[in-house]
Amino acid sequence: MISDLNLPVAALRIPAAEPPSSAFDACVSSKNRLLMLLSSAFFMYYFALIVGAGWCRSLFTLQVLGGMNLGTVFALSQYLFVAGLAVVYTRRMTIIDARIKVHAATRNVGDQP
């Protein structure tokens, strides 16, 4: 799966025997899995900040980096985390988009919903 990130051609691999509609559905499933994974990661990371700032304040006052406390580092890290998440999503979706384009064209001709 990781190799797919760097090999767009791999994205176009379609099992020869697979009917067009199920190939499209497989693309949709992989997209939904990606959305679930990234959404869960995002909500867990963000609400860890809220829970920390609300209920674990003493933990957030620990000095960790230079003069900065854990709370500040964690709050600012949300920007980096979201940037990383956006990069992963974009790269994965470039691959999924290419697969969907192939399968949607096939389905559009022969298997209109």
Binding site: S39, F42, L49, Q78, V82
Partner: peptide, 13 residues
């Protein structure tokens, strides 16, 4: 931070 990260659901969903 809340205003910013709110764009993740926008982007993903």
């Amino acid at each position: 931070v809340g205003f910013f990260v709110a764009f993740v659901p926008v982007l993903l969903l």
